[in-house]
């Protein structure tokens, strides 16, 4: 296959950046999108040009590193697929492909297609965990969990924090990511003690990071490589509402 790539090139955070056109020649339809980029980079290195920088790690769809807009669609827009799992057979010979980094104020571009997703880490550090006392190993089945609850929790625990939801959202909102974590722990008994404060603190941090708001476009759900449902956003909306209306700090005895 022969393809024309229009790739966003940007030296660093200060550079204004621009689209640069490259030819990708002799691309095998069996190669993955990242392997195709590797091939283009080999050629660039051979010509003493700067290779295209992009994030990648596991290349099997579980790490959430690879992140790029391909023809305006996060991870290329194929259902339940990350960029590394996207194969060139999904494209036509001679096709023009536009490759851009995630665009969000909260995700500043580091270089070319690489963005800083530290905002997600800061949101997780505000409540995306359960506090457990360390000590002896607890009995495996000491806390009963129904199969349904475990499955619901797993549906959202699948989130790989790739940021496709933010990239696809017309408002650059991070609601699907944040709600996936809120909903994951809200479905488990271990998540109950910190449930309301988790929703409050994570949403507060999300707002601070400068993500947009949810308009219920549901683009995030369609773009999510783990197909996480917007039902989780409803769970977060519910928990945050409950926390806002009912939560009170301990004030001591009368």
């Amino acid at each position: 296959m022969e393809l024309t790539l229009h790739v966003w090139r940007q030296k660093n955070g200060q550079d204004s950046g621009k689209m640069v056109t490259y030819k990708a020649r002799d691309v095998s339809p069996e190669s993955s999108f990242l392997e195709m980029l590797d091939q283009v980079n080999e050629e660039l290195i051979g010509k003493n040009d700067e290779p295209i920088a992009f994030d990648h790690d596991c290349r099997e769809g579980i790490c959430g590193s690879c992140s790029m807009m391909i023809n305006g669609k996060a991870h290329g827009g194929r259902k339940g697929t990350t960029t590394c799992q996207l194969h060139m057979r999904s494209f036509k010979d001679g096709e023009q492909i536009y490759i851009e980094p995630w665009r969000a104020r909260a995700f500043p571009v580091v270089k070319d297609l690489v963005v800083d997703r530290g905002a997600f880490d800061r949101i997780i550090s505000k409540g995306g965990f359960v506090s457990v006392a360390t000590g002896g190993v607890p009995d495996a089945n000491a806390i009963p969990i129904s199969k349904e609850a475990a499955d619901l929790a797993m549906d959202t625990a699948e989130c790989i924090a790739c940021g496709a939801c933010v990239a696809a959202c017309k408002n650059a909102s991070a609601m699907l990511f944040v709600s996936a974590k809120v909903s994951h722990l809200a479905n488990l008994p271990q998540g109950q003690p910190e449930r309301l404060q988790r929703a409050t603190h994570m949403v507060e941090q999300m707002d601070k990071e400068g993500f947009g708001n949810c308009t219920n476009y549901f683009e995030c759900e369609a773009a999510c490589p783990k197909q996480i449902s917007v039902r989780s956003i409803a769970v977060m909306n519910r928990d945050f509402l409950k926390a806002s209306l009912l939560h009170q700090e301990p004030v001591g005895k009368a």
Binding site: H6, N71, G77, E100, A172, G212, E219
Partner: peptide, 29 residues
């Protein structure tokens, strides 16, 4: 206020814009 915040959340737009499932009504509110 929400609209201005949402615009500000994406200072740089995509060169290639695509929509997967957001309805026309939702995008034009």
């Amino acid at each position: 206020r929400l609209t201005f915040q949402n615009r500000a959340a994406r200072p740089q737009r995509y060169q290639y814009e695509a929509t997967l499932q957001a309805s026309f009504a939702s995008r034009t509110m």
